[in-house]
Design a binder for these strands. Structure first.
Length: 811
RNA sequence: GCCGAAGUGGCGGAAUAGGCAGACGCGCCGGUCUCAAAAACCGGUGGGAUUUAUCCCUUAUCGGUUCGAUUCCGAUCUUCGGCACCA
């Protein structure tokens, strides 16, 4: 029988649709929540989506066959810049553009036969969803976690919008890759930093997350323990506080460097001879781009303020400088300069002739400041440090900190690199910030009963001008204050799309609720996500935000789980055959739709899976399809011809010879495929099925046994090639969907009883092989081995025996 | 610079609580079928030597531990990912 894929695919997709087989069961007795990162509808589905969803689909279908009640939903992360880009370029309304793309992509996804529960589809750009995104924001606001602050925001001059720190990489905008500037603006922030420690601690509970993602998040949160120390400014009643992780070097402070943005910077020099130089320097450093500012290769520079600070421990004076290598946003914005023991301070001191004072010596020799070419940053013994001299530096860190606290000039403290989350955007296509600005009452949250704050439609000028397009829409802007009732203005900004995606996993548990974002009952029934599948590029963005929002909602009592997802799997990217990212501009895009139409969905899936393990990238080549097409057609032929509905019992103990071997093979294949799918190693699962097929075609024994084995093989291939498996299942006489069949078990006795090949080595080199049963006594195996290689027992020095593996004879 | 992962035939890749390196597939070579070709099927295929039922070499490179190392340890090289003046 010919394998007519297009007919078979259409038939079974229709069947799945009509029988609603993939619709989530409400009772969920044995729940499994499988989640794929939802899609940005930028056009049609590409190979990356195809791989992501197919990999998840295999996993989900196997779970179904294992008897789990599966929640496997899909949706659209539908707000965001590209829709506005299309509006500007082509004059299309962003909503029209977005919904059009969703329609096209949904159709494609349905043709791909992914087992999504489409009845739970969500679209973040629709009022029934963003109403609740606004609700989430209001909870944050009411808890004091959403606040406005004027700050130097990352500003992308091309997208004309602000960006969160996470959206700037290497000084470039994550979307358009143009250089980001700094711009002073009043913005909405979310106090994610209140959760720094919780987000860090939570990682230790996430055993099912890849280590590299957890490491990236740990580094991103960037916890460091240290000590804050106050230095009095000479001749004033003011003091500056520094944060240091090396209080053991405090006696080596010869200068102090302050960030140009520090509130005291200007104040300290006003009216002095240093005023002009310092103000010029501050102005200059603000004009520098982030790339210049944060480049580690750039020569450090600074300007002297004419002021001195007093070291609270040594009583020594140190020069106070302004230097733009000091970050205002980390620690206290002031750094104590210890040239002898810090690389940056050393470079700075050398440039400006600041004294270098050694306070830590290596164990074996003494440092001479004049001869040093580099800072000594290792551990050592404290010197020139008063009562602390002679202490090993790790101990010094503790002792100096204690002294600082005792003197009342500082305290031990913890710092994090994590910054607050900037959530406002000066764009149209997003969820409006549900806040009213009232002259009398200040910032007033919109009443929950008045949500959503609808995004106005119609005549909106989308051209980016550096302020929100909504600001010009008077109809939208003019409102009344929910508190005092007087005329007031709406907030003109919209929320970052990462706010929309920070809670979508919970909305899926109750997607049509119009009274609440979700019920606690439903959230707790399904959450946490049991397996979350997506790319690793979101490690420090979405994957932190959604953990934060989940924890926040938990703390507010809206749900019970501490983490949104217990297991995470990152699939690799699909690249072109040269290893480059596929993009329209390069013209190297491979279309999954074209492949699917030409070869069928199942062969295309199999080719993708077989090409490489799922977590690795795959350099796509159409040649991958050749082998699996031969395989599918051979598999289809033998199964459609040799399976029978009724077969007699297979009694392993009565099998012999070829029959026994073949039976053991199918049982072993069940074990292998089951384990490999659980590990996302679909490539080896497929090769095990190929090896089985090779033997099945050669097998010429018992028809019942062959049919028994083939039906097991059909079930094994079902998650990987679902349409073909359904067809073969029905040809085999089965009436129900194969996805209602139970995932096959294997005969452990048979798998364990298989004859094993033992290797006979002489001095570690393979000389012969013997087949023995696994329970043959050691002495007997040794005897056979010696006979086999014709070595008399008297020549043997030693025999190494590894059960079930080998015999190594030393002579 | 720091942290992490990886390096296996012509290619994708398999095998690591240390135990037959190269499963499975692509490609290639030979064959069957055919007037011929394609498709399909069958056989062969890491490299080298050879007296061809034989031997040597081989998992980035060099060393170590071991009866035995792709797997463990150390050094070096390369590639990829992340962080990058975080005091």
């Amino acid at each position: 029988m010919e394998y007519n894929f297009s007919e078979i695919e259409a038939k079974w997709q229709k069947y799945w649709d009509e029988t609603k087989i993939f619709q989530t069961k409400e009772e969920a007795l044995k729940k499994f929540y499988l989640l794929v990162m939802f899609a940005y509808p930028s056009g049609d589905i590409h190979m990356g989506h195809f791989r992501n969803y197919s990999v998840a689909d295999v996993y989900g279908r196997k779970k179904m066959m294992e008897g789990y009640d599966l929640l496997f939903p899909f949706g659209w992360d539908a707000f965001g810049l590209p829709a506005e880009g299309a509006a500007i370029k082509a004059g299309i309304d962003p909503e029209h553009w977005t919904l059009g793309n969703i329609a096209v992509s949904s159709n494609t996804l349905k043709l791909l036969g992914i087992a999504f529960d489409w009845s739970r589809e969500i679209r973040t750009c629709m009022p029934d969803y963003y109403k609740w995104t606004q609700w989430v924001f209001l909870q944050l606001f009411k808890s004091g976690l959403a606040y406005r602050k004027t700050s130097l925001a990352n500003w992308c001059p091309v997208c004309k919008t602000v960006l969160a720190n996470e959206q700037v990489s290497g000084g470039e905008c994550w979307r358009c890759h143009n250089q980001v500037e700094k711009k002073e603006m009043e913005q909405w922030f979310v106090r994610i930093t209140d959760y720094s420690q919780q987000l860090l601690d939570g990682l230790d509970t996430l055993d099912g997350w890849p280590e590299n993602i957890k490491t990236m998040q740990r580094n991103w949160i960037g916890r460091s323990e240290g000590t804050e120390i106050d230095f009095q400014i000479e001749g004033t009643d003011k003091k500056v506080t520094v944060f240091t992780t090396r209080p053991d070097t405090v006696f080596g402070v010869t200068f102090m460097a302050m960030a140009p943005e520090h509130p005291l910077a200007k104040e300290l020099v006003i009216g002095t001879e240093y005023e002009k130089d310092v103000l010029d320097y501050i102005k200059k450093s603000q004009l520098k781009t982030d790339i210049d500012r944060t480049s580690t290769v750039r020569e450090k520079d600074g300007v002297f303020t004419g002021r001195y600070v007093i070291n609270p421990l040594s009583g020594e004076k140190a020069q106070l400088w302004i230097g733009d290598y000091v970050l205002a946003s980390y620690g206290t914005g002031v750094v104590m300069g210890v040239p002898a023991h810090d690389t940056r301070d050393f470079a700075f001191a050398k440039k400006y002739n600041v004294p270098i004072k050694v306070v830590i010596n290596p164990k074996d020799h003494e440092l001479n400041p004049e001869e040093m070419t580099d800072a000594y940053t290792e551990e050592g013994i404290m010197v020139n440090s008063g009562e602390f001299s002679g202490l090993p530096s790790p101990e010094g860190i503790v002792k100096v900190s204690e002294a600082v606290e005792k003197l009342g000039v500082g305290k031990r403290t913890v710092n994090y690199k994590l910054r607050d989350w900037l959530v406002s955007r000066q764009r149209y296509w997003g969820a409006p910030v549900p806040i009213v600005h009232c002259e009398h009452c200040g910032l007033v949250p919109v009443d929950e009963k008045d949500l959503p704050v609808l995004l106005p439609k119609g005549d909106i000028d989308f051209i980016p001008k550096g302020r929100s397009p909504l600001a010009d829409c008077e109809e939208f802007m003019n409102t009344t204050c929910p508190k005092c009732g007087r005329p007031a203005k709406r907030d003109a900004d919209t929320l970052d799309t990462f706010v929309c995606s920070s809670w979508y996993h919970i909305r899926y548990t109750d997607p049509h609720n119009d009274k609440m974002p979700f019920t606690k009952e439903n959230a707790d029934k399904w959450c946490p996500v049991d397996m979350y599948i997506g790319g690793s590029e979101h490690a420090c963005m979405h994957l932190i935000y959604f953990r934060f929002v989940h924890k926040f909602l938990k703390d507010k009592g809206f749900l019970t789980s501490y983490e949104p997802a217990t297991r995470l799997f990152n699939h690799g990217m699909v690249l072109d055959s040269k290893g480059e990212i596929m993009s329209k501009s390069k013209g190297n895009v491979v279309s999954p739709i074209k492949l699917m139409k030409e070869h069928g969905v199942d062969p295309t899936r199999l080719a993708m899976f077989f090409a490489s393990p799922s977590e690795k990238e795959v350099l796509w080549s159409d040649a991958f399809i050749v082998g699996v097409k031969r395989f599918t057609s051979r598999f289809f032929n033998i199964c459609s011809e040799k399976t029978k509905k009724n077969i007699g019992e297979i009694d392993f103990s009565k099998l012999t010879g070829e029959d026994k071997k073949f039976y053991v093979l199918i049982e072993k294949t069940v074990k292998k495929v089951s384990e490999d799918i659980d590990k996302f190693q679909y490539n080896t699962a497929i090769s095990a099925l190929m090896a089985f097929l090779n033997s099945a075609e050669k097998y010429s024994g018992n028809d019942d046994l062959l049919s028994y084995a083939l039906k097991k093989a059909i079930m094994l291939i079902a998650p990987l090639a679902p349409h073909m498996a359904e067809e073969l299942w029905s040809i085999a006489g089965e009436k129900e969907s194969i996805f209602k069949a139970h995932w096959p078990t294997y005969d452990e006795e048979a798998v364990a009883s298989e004859l094993i090949t033992m290797v006979i080595q002489i001095k570690g080199k393979v000389k012969a092989k013997i087949e023995v049963s696994p329970d043959m006594p050691e002495d007997e195996v040794k005897k056979i081995a010696l006979e086999k290689v014709k070595i008399p027992e008297c020549d043997v020095k030693k025999i190494i025996f590894v059960k079930g593996r080998l015999v190594n004879i030393l002579i």
